[in-house]
Amino acid sequence: MASSSHRRRSRPERRGLRAPAIAVGAVAAVALVVSLVVAFRPDGGTAAAGADKVKPVAGAATNASPTAAVSPSSSPSPSPTSSAAGPSPSTKPSSAAPAKKTSVRASATPAPRKPSSTGGSLAGRIRPGTTYQGVATSYDIGNGDGACSYGPTSDVMTAAMNTADYETSKACGAYVSVTSGGKSITVRITNECPAPCQVGQLDLSQQAFAKLAPLSAGRIPITWTLLSPAVSDTVSIRYKTGSTQYWCGIQAIGHRNPLARLEVRTGGGWQSLARTGYNYFLSEQGAGCGGALRLTDIYGEQLTVEGIAVRANVVQPTRVQFARH
């Protein structure tokens, strides 16, 4: 029994002595097979590394940087570009959409401003789209001159506006449609009708009044509205008698729409001139006399006029006119 027990213990020891030799033989055999396979491959084993690329597991972090071009749409915000004016402000764009860019267009002269969408936002008492009620009377206009200082004219379809609606010559040059008894006429405001003319009243030329009613009627009820008519002429500029580079009065003639402002260009920018009751804009200290002018109508449209010299009491035409409304 003792020898049987000894044999069981000694047999594992003998297998353990043969194990290294068997392992060495197995490794040598595998190496031989591998070397033969590699040797007989068409590429000679040089592409083995590329064939054994390991695909990354989804969600795993990788350190390799892709070399393929990235589509612009794949980036939520564009990279800022350098500017000659200086570095861009350090701002973080919204993740929802890239920040919008704005462009500024430089111009030698101010671009005309589009008419106001509110319709006569710079108008005074006389506003577009409004119907006024009043009465009409008539007077002999003589040579056609009046408080607006336009001078003599052959145009007989004119009227004098009551003082309240004349509004310190703001009504000068306005075209209005006058209706009475089913008849309508168009007249241009060239004069002022002082008291006893009432608010809403127009003192028409006799020729204009006669188209609505006999002169013997004396006084008739009317309604009237502001117009922006078709005109063939452009705006003209006139410097007042006595104007020089040191003091000047400036007047605009032939504007389609009522004039809201007249400005002169100075070293400090555009300067608005005060309007008188006789329809001249005065530059008491001579600022801008003989320089560029900017006209603004009641709709907000602006016209820039250059090249008008100080020539007292001379009507000088321009090439500009306000838009029709």
Rank of each mutant, 00 (worst) to 15 (best):
M1V: 07
M1T: 07
H6C: 03
R7C: 03
R8W: 08
R18Y: 10
A19E: 12
P20N: 13
A28L: 11
A28F: 04
S35E: 01
V38E: 00
F40L: 11
R41C: 04
P42A: 08
D43E: 10
G45S: 00
T46A: 05
T46S: 05
A47C: 02
A47P: 00
K53W: 01
V54G: 03
P56M: 02
P56A: 03
A58C: 00
T62H: 07
A64L: 13
A64E: 13
S65F: 12
P66A: 15
P66Y: 08
A68R: 07
V70W: 04
S73N: 14
S74T: 14
S74Y: 06
S75A: 14
S75F: 11
P78T: 09
T81I: 13
S83R: 08
S83L: 05
G86A: 10
P89Q: 14
K92W: 02
K92C: 02
P93F: 06
A99T: 14
K100L: 07
T102R: 03
V104K: 04
S107I: 01
T109D: 03
P115F: 01
S117H: 08
T118P: 00
T118N: 11
G119Y: 09
G119H: 13
G120S: 07
G120R: 10
L122V: 07
I126E: 00
P128I: 03
T130R: 07
G134M: 07
T137H: 06
T137N: 04
S138C: 04
Y139K: 13
I141Q: 15
I141S: 12
A147T: 15
Y150W: 12
Y150D: 14
Y150Q: 11
S154W: 14
V156D: 10
A159T: 09
A160N: 08
M161C: 05
K170H: 15
A171P: 00
C172Q: 13
C172V: 12
G173Q: 10
G173P: 06
G173Y: 08
Y175H: 15
S177M: 04
S177P: 03
V178M: 06
T179C: 02
T179V: 10
G181E: 06
K183T: 05
I185Y: 06
T186L: 04
T186D: 14
R188L: 05
E192I: 08
P194G: 12
P196Y: 10
C197D: 10
V199C: 02
Q206T: 13
K211A: 09
K211I: 01
A213F: 01
P214N: 07
L215K: 08
A217Q: 10
I222G: 09
S232A: 12
S243M: 06
S243P: 07
Q245W: 06
G249F: 11
I253G: 13
L259W: 09
V264Q: 02
G268Y: 04
L273A: 04
A274K: 13
R275Y: 06
T276K: 14
T276V: 11
G277E: 08
Y278N: 15
Y278S: 14
N279R: 12
F281S: 12
G286M: 00
G286F: 04
G286S: 01
G290P: 04
L293H: 02
L293I: 04
R294F: 04
G300T: 03
G300E: 02
Q302E: 03
Q302K: 05
Q302H: 03
L303N: 01
V305S: 09
G307Q: 12
R311A: 08
A312F: 08
A312H: 09
T318P: 10
T318Q: 10
R319V: 01
Q321K: 15
